[in-house]
Computed example of a mutant assay.
Amino acid sequence: TEESADSVGKAIAQAVANDETINLTDDKGRHIIVPAKALGYAIIGSETKHAVGFGAL
């Protein structure tokens, strides 16, 4: 996402606290919606682009 690290962190913290979905837009304009309880971890503020994947255990 092109959003600031602070903005992303606040969005994640709010979603986790309220058991909501995390709603972000990536740098290509695609919407990313993740149920907060499905989030394992987030890398915020990294200079390197990371691939993101979700899977079931």
Rank of each mutant, 00 (worst) to 15 (best):
K28C: 00
A15S: 03
K37R: 15
V16M: 02
G9H: 07
A42G: 10
V52E: 01
Q14T: 12
Y41D: 11
A51E: 04
K49M: 10
S7C: 02
G29A: 01
G55A: 14
A17N: 09
H50F: 14
D6C: 02
D27L: 13
L24V: 01
T25M: 00
V8M: 11
A56P: 01
H31V: 15
E20K: 12
A17F: 04
V8I: 14
D27S: 14
I43G: 07
I22N: 04
E20F: 02
H50W: 14
E2I: 12
A11R: 11
V34N: 04
I22H: 08
G45T: 05
I12Q: 06
E20L: 12
I44M: 07
L57M: 07
G29Y: 08
I43D: 09
I33M: 14
T48C: 00
G29C: 13
V8S: 00
K37E: 08
G53Q: 15
K37M: 04
A15P: 05
K28Q: 09
V16E: 05
H31A: 15
N18P: 00
G55Y: 13
I43T: 11
N23F: 09
E47W: 07
A11H: 02
G45K: 07
A51F: 00
V16T: 10
A38E: 07
N23K: 15
P35N: 06
A11Y: 04
K49Q: 12
G45I: 07
A13E: 01
S4L: 01
K10V: 02
E47R: 15
E20T: 09
A5E: 10
A56Q: 14
E47M: 12
G53S: 15
A56Y: 13
S46K: 03
A13R: 10
H31I: 13
I32T: 10
N18L: 06
R30Y: 12
R30F: 07
D26C: 08
S7D: 10
N23P: 02
K37D: 09
D6M: 02
H50K: 11
A5L: 05
H31C: 01
G45W: 01
E3F: 12
A42T: 04
T21I: 04
I43C: 06
I44T: 10
G40V: 00
D26S: 10
N23V: 13
A5W: 05
A11F: 07
L57S: 15
T25G: 06
Y41C: 13
D27K: 15
N18C: 06
R30I: 04
S7I: 05
K10H: 07
A11C: 08
D6W: 08
A42D: 01
L57F: 08
E2L: 13
E47L: 09
E3R: 14
E2Q: 12
G55T: 10
D19A: 11
E47N: 15
A56G: 09
L24T: 06
I33P: 03
F54E: 11
E20Q: 12
